[in-house]
Simulated scan of single mutants.
Amino acid sequence: MSDFKKYIRLVKEFGPKIAYLKIMQKLFKKNEKLGKKYTIAKQKYITDKIKNEFYDIFQTDKKKNYADGYYLQENSPIWVFWWQGFESAPILVQKCIESIEKNAYQHPVILITRENINNYVDIPDYIYEKLEKGYITYTHFSDILRVSLLAKHGGIWMDATIYTTGDFTKEMINYNFYSNKIKPFGSFISQCRWSSFFIASGKENPICIICRDVFLEYWKSHDVLIDYLLIDDVIYLAAKENEKIKAAIDKIPFNNEKIYELQRVINSPFSHEQLEEINKETNIFKLSNKYKYEKYVNDIPTFYSYIIGHKN
C-alpha cells in the first residue's frame, strides 16, 4: 500500500489529525524541538484512540487476579519466526538462528514458518485475508503471532535477526516478564524499557494477553495500522492502566546495554579485542537484514564476515 493510500485510510478510519501529526513529525524529524513536539502529540493522540476503542480489554484484564503469574521455566520454548521457511532465509538470518540454538541452554528452539503456525496457535482467517491483501505487513503479522504464542505457551520470542554470543537465558527465569532494557534514547514511547524483538514471559501473562486481544479486535474493524509500533503503544497503556503490569516492567533489570553495538560496527574490520569489549555484559545483539554488508574492508575481514563464517 502506497503512503498516499495509507494517509487516506488513516483519515477515513481515525480522522484527519493523525495524518497531520504524522506528516508534521516527518517534516520536522531533524528539528529536535519541533520533532519532539509532534512526536509527543502523535503518541498521545494514538494512545488516546487505542485506550478509548479498546477500553473494555484493558479494564477486563485489570480486574483479573493474575497474582505473580507464571514464571519462565528453564525449558520454556524459544520462538523464532521466518514466514518463507528457514532454508530460504538470508545467510545472516541463518547464522543468527544458529547462534540462538547454540546458546539456548535447556530451552527448545521452535522455528515457526507459514507451514506450522497452526500447530501452535489459532490465528483468525480475517488476519490472513488482510495479510494477503497487504493491509497487514509480515512485520505486523509477526507482532500478532509473538503475543499469541507467548500468551498461550509462554517462552522467549526472539526476532530472526538476533545474534547471540553466550548463554542469555539464566537470569530470565526469575521473572514473569522480561525484555531488553537499556538507558533511554530517542522518543520511543517505551523509553527503552522493553523491546518487542526480544520478549519473554510465562504463559497467560496479562501483557501478552492484552496485546493479543487488542490486535485481534483492532484488525476486525481496521484496514490500516495507526502506528508502526502499535505493540509498544499497547504495552505502554497496559502498564499505565494496571499497577501489576507496571511493576513487572519496572522489575526488569538493565541488561544487554550494547545490544545495537554489533550492528554499528558490522562493516568495520573485525577485531577479537573489540568483540571481547562489545561482549562485556552483552550477549544478545540486534542486527538487521535490510542493509548491504561487506565481507572485506581494505582486504581485512569485517564483523559481518566473522558472523557469517566467511572463509577466504
Rank of each mutant, 00 (worst) to 15 (best):
M1C: 15
F4I: 15
K6T: 11
Y7G: 09
I18S: 02
A19L: 07
K22Y: 10
K29A: 09
G35F: 08
Y38E: 04
I40Q: 14
A41W: 06
Y45G: 05
I46V: 03
D56N: 09
T60Q: 04
T60Y: 04
K62T: 03
K62A: 04
K63C: 07
Q73V: 05
E74H: 08
N75G: 02
Q84F: 09
S88E: 14
A89M: 13
A89P: 09
L92Q: 01
V93Q: 15
C96W: 08
I97L: 15
I97K: 14
I100G: 10
I100K: 11
I100Q: 10
E101I: 13
E101Y: 12
K102M: 03
A104G: 01
Y105G: 02
L111D: 01
T113M: 02
N116T: 07
N116S: 05
N119R: 10
N119D: 11
D125H: 02
I127L: 02
E129D: 02
E129Y: 03
E129W: 03
Y135W: 14
D143G: 14
V147L: 08
S148T: 03
S148R: 01
L149D: 08
H153Y: 15
G155Y: 11
G155H: 11
I156K: 12
T161R: 12
M172R: 04
N176D: 07
I182Q: 10
P184M: 08
S190Q: 11
Q191C: 13
C192H: 14
R193Q: 12
S195P: 15
S196E: 07
S196C: 12
F197I: 14
K203N: 05
N205K: 09
P206E: 10
P206V: 06
I209V: 06
C211K: 02
L216Y: 05
V224P: 03
L225G: 01
Y228P: 06
L229T: 15
I235K: 01
Y236V: 03
K240P: 01
D250E: 09
K251R: 05
F254R: 02
N255E: 01
Y260M: 01
Y260W: 04
Q263P: 15
Q263Y: 11
R264F: 02
V265Q: 01
F270L: 00
F270N: 00
N279C: 00
K280E: 00
T282E: 00
I284F: 00
I284P: 09
K286W: 01
L287G: 13
Y291N: 11
Y291T: 08
K292S: 11
Y296P: 00
D299M: 13
F303A: 05
F303P: 00
Y304W: 01
Y306D: 00
I307T: 06
I308T: 05
